[in-house]
């Protein structure tokens, strides 16, 4: 059992932790990554000249 949490259940028949059924929860993007305008311009020019 994870020692960062304390789980209790089923006191009558011994401890019964929460169901172990992990599910991923990806972090959502809410803010656009700010790209410095100069870096953005250089990237644009580099692509054009390539």
């Amino acid at each position: 059992m994870d020692d960062r949490v304390t789980e209790l259940s089923g006191a009558a028949q011994g401890p019964s932790p929460l169901p172990q059924a992990p599910l991923d929860m990806p972090r959502q993007m809410l803010e656009r990554r700010r790209r410095p305008w100069l870096a953005s311009l250089l990237a644009h020019l580099t692509i054009k000249s390539a």
Partner: peptide, 20 residues
């Protein structure tokens, strides 16, 4: 909360305390 955890045929009650 301890009496809620007895398995007596009623809906199960879980408890967990988070330290973080």
């Amino acid at each position: 909360f301890a009496p809620l955890f007895a398995r007596d045929g009623r809906a199960v009650v879980y408890y967990r305390n988070r330290k973080d």
